[in-house]
Structure formats: structure tokens, C-alpha cells
Design a protein around this nucleic acid. Structure first.
Lengths: 102, 102
DNA sequence: CGCTGGTATCAGCGAGCGATGATGTGACAG
DNA sequence: CTGTCACATCATCGCTCGCTGATACCAGCG
């Protein structure tokens, strides 16, 4: 099976702010307040993006009192990495599979 | 610096049609006519998306008579793969780096 | 040269998405 | 119980982006 990467996950990562969130979360587990400080975005805005990331299956939430911590799901990122590796490997051999001009 | 993935490349892959184009190109080198047949999209539309992919540095063009062949650049995909692998590895250790509740 | 076919570019329209403000909910402190 | 704080949801506005049709460009063929 030729690894069709999940479009939703990639779309979620396509937004610059969400990408920043992901890189921040890759370093430490944070709650919304921290993310607001780090990114400078409004809380509402952040919450919206977190919802997208949650629905894309990229992050997990962990309540801690009134705070909610967000944690990246490494499996998803690892899966992406593998799928892109497959694509790259396939692309290397594709250079010879040139379909004839019609 | 912790591998900030190039947003442009990811955005380019975020579109479903472009993702389909990329998976097709991962299998064989094709020209626009083939892509029009395979995807069912209009030629103009395809040409637009190819421009995006070209500017994102994902594909190379190779003229062949009046046809233009598109070829994936495996290095870019491999780079993406590696960056996501880094993110995944970093995310695995991030679960312990929990910043204190403010 | 003129014609045909393969591609790229341009202009315009419409849908989707991100940003924002107002509001709701649930947990802790006093 | 009341107030406050952390966070989510909703509704709305504005802009970006993808799609389409018209058109221009270039290569080969007769």
C-alpha cells in the first residue's frame, strides 16, 4: 500500500501557528496559559487551534486541577515520518517509471 | 534549533488534490496531461497546483518536446521524514518536561 | 508560415478558514 | 454561596485560497 498520508493531520500542521504549537509541545508538556504566553495569540484563538489539533489526533489532553495540559502523541508524528520516508523511497525509483508521451 | 518544519512544504501537501498529485508522482514521472486524466481536474487547475508544488520545491520539471514531465524531489520528502522523526523523538521525552502550573 | 495541441498565466467568483469578542462551564479560594 | 480564574464554545467578520473560463505562449507538423 502506497502510504497515502492522512490529509487531516497535514492540514493541521499546515497552519503556521499550529506548527509553532507543535514544536513547543515537542519540547515540553504545556497548558493553554503557557501557550498563550509563548505564542502571543489570544486565548480564544489558541483554544480553537487546540481543538483542531485534538480532532486531528495529534495531541492528548490531561486535566490537572483547573489547568489542562496538552501532550503530543509521538506515534502520530512517527507515522508521518515513516509515510514520508516511504514516499521518498518510492519517489527515488519513480524517476525511471516514465509514462510515455500520449 | 529543534527542526521547525518548513511551513510552505507542509501547506503545499495540505491540499487534498496536491497530496494526490504527490502520491501519483511518487509512483511514476508524469506530465500534465496524465495528471489531468488521473485526477479528473481541469488543466488550468492542475497547472495552478503544479505551480504551488514547484514553488514549494517539491517537484522538478523536465521538458520533453511540447510535454513537461514532473518529477518528485526525494530529498525534500526525506528531509520531511527526518524532521518528523526528530519531532517524534523529542515528543517522547517531552512528556516528562512538564512546566509547573502558573 | 499558419495551424494544432500542450501548458502557463490572468482575472474573477465563491467557499472555507483563521481571528476576534461575547458568552458559557467547571474548578478552586474565601 | 459568591467570586475568580482557566478553558471551551458560539457567532461573526474578513481574507485567503482553490476553482473556473479566457487568453497568451511555445513547440512541432504540414
Amino acid at each position: 500500500m502506497l502510504t497515502s498520508v492522512d490529509p487531516d493531520v497535514i492540514r493541521a500542521l499546515g497552519d503556521p501557528l499550529r506548527l509553532k504549537i507543535v514544536t513547543l509541545l515537542a519540547r515540553e508538556t504545556l497548558c493553554t496559559t503557557h501557550l498563550v504566553e509563548e505564542t502571543g495569540a489570544k486565548q480564544t484563538n489558541l483554544s480553537n487551534h487546540m481543538k483542531v489539533l485534538r480532532e486531528a489526533g495529534l495531541v492528548e489532553t490531561e486535566p490537572c486541577g483547573r489547568f489542562i495540559y496538552y501532550r503530543l502523541k509521538p506515534e502520530v508524528l512517527a507515522g508521518l515520518s515513516e509515510q514520508f520516508a516511504d514516499l521518498a523511497a518510492s519517489a527515488r525509483t519513480a524517476a525511471e517509471n516514465k509514462r510515455a508521451c500520449p
